[in-house]
Simulated assay, not measured.
Amino acid sequence: MSESTTGPDKVVNQPTPPHDEAATVGPRCGNNPATHLTDGDRQAVAEFKTYLAQRAALHHAREQQRLQDDFERPAFGEDA
């Protein structure tokens, strides 16, 4: 399909621009369900999920240690 542009003495046929997937799919982001991930994208997501899980486990271990230290610490005014 083509569009016509009229001028003072001429008609110019302009070809329809090629299909732009980005225009119909939308931006490439994690919130767009129409975005298709590449193998590299999936690998990056898996690596980041692994990093987040390790970070959460470390945070949990540190928090547990802090709670244990606070529990074992003598109360204010008590002798150790």
Score class of each variant (00 low, 15 high):
Q43W: 06
T5W: 11
P74K: 12
H36D: 02
E63R: 08
T24Y: 13
Q14M: 08
V45E: 09
E21M: 05
P17K: 06
D20W: 03
D70V: 09
E63I: 01
D70E: 15
A46R: 11
T38K: 03
D39R: 08
R55A: 14
S2T: 09
N31W: 06
P74L: 08
L67W: 06
Q68L: 13
L67F: 05
Q68K: 14
D41A: 02
P27R: 14
P8M: 11
L52K: 09
K10E: 11
F71E: 15
V45A: 06
G26H: 06
Q43C: 01
L37Q: 02
A61T: 08
R66C: 03
P18I: 02
T50D: 08
A56C: 05
P8K: 12
V45C: 02
A53H: 01
N13Q: 12
T16D: 07
K49N: 11
A61I: 03
G77L: 04
G26L: 05
Y51T: 03
A46K: 12
H36P: 00
G40N: 09
T24S: 12
V12F: 07
S2E: 09
E47K: 04
M1D: 10
Q65S: 07
F48E: 12
A57G: 07
G30T: 05
G40P: 00
T35D: 07
E47T: 03
F71Q: 14
T50M: 01
A61E: 13
A75F: 11
R55Q: 15
P15D: 09
